[in-house]
């Protein structure tokens, strides 16, 4: 077992474990914390794929910004007794669980038995493309227009969020 595969196994196991905890915890704060753990694991996995830039912004944007927002909202709403929302087993959950299990099996079946696509890269490229310089140059040349559009989306989101969350429009 190589070092890489050991690292992958550890990260993968903790990612799956934390994900399961996210969806099973009753308390949203706990879920949020486990989600942060999950994001860190994913950032580690990105690193093993030589995607340094993505790994960094995964931590900065997701774990840092988005999750702070979540925790903030949870605290703001001050949800009292969460037990009210914890639910027993219903027909819907059984069906949903069945579907999800079936979906997972199908995914795995497809991934294992489908033909791998012919590889077209050289190993040296893999380490280069993940760097900040490379992605930055790509973003500001080839993907300049979509990049600028994202700023528009974010502006719209800010305005929308304010409008929606405001108590009263005046």
């Amino acid at each position: 077992m190589t070092l890489e595969s050991v690292i992958f196994s550890v990260l993968a196991a903790s990612a799956v474990g934390s994900a399961l905890l996210v969806v099973t915890r009753r308390n949203p704060v706990m879920s949020a914390l486990y989600l942060i753990v999950n994001f860190f694991c994913l950032a580690g996995l990105y690193l093993t794929l030589h995607a340094q830039f993505i790994a960094i912004i995964q931590i900065l944007v997701y774990a840092g910004a988005i999750m702070v927002l979540f925790v903030f909202v949870i605290m703001l709403l001050n949800l009292g007794d969460e037990r009210k929302l914890s639910d027993g087993v219903s027909w819907k959950k059984i069906v949903a669980a069945g579907f999800c299990a079936a979906l997972l099996m199908e995914f795995v079946y497809i991934l294992i038995y489908s033909e791998p696509s012919p590889a077209v890269m050289s190993a040296s490229m893999a380490t280069e493309i993940g760097t900040v310089e490379y992605i930055g140059s790509q973003l500001f040349t080839k993907f300049l227009f979509p990049f600028e559009i994202t700023s528009l989306i974010l502006t719209a989101a800010i305005v929308g969020a304010i409008v929606l969350a405001k108590r009263k429009l005046d």
Binding site: K92, V95, L103
Partner: peptide, 11 residues
């Protein structure tokens, strides 16, 4: 749920 069911059946 129906949505997920649909994906399951299409796959």
């Amino acid at each position: 749920v129906v949505f997920v069911g649909g994906i399951v059946f299409v796959l």
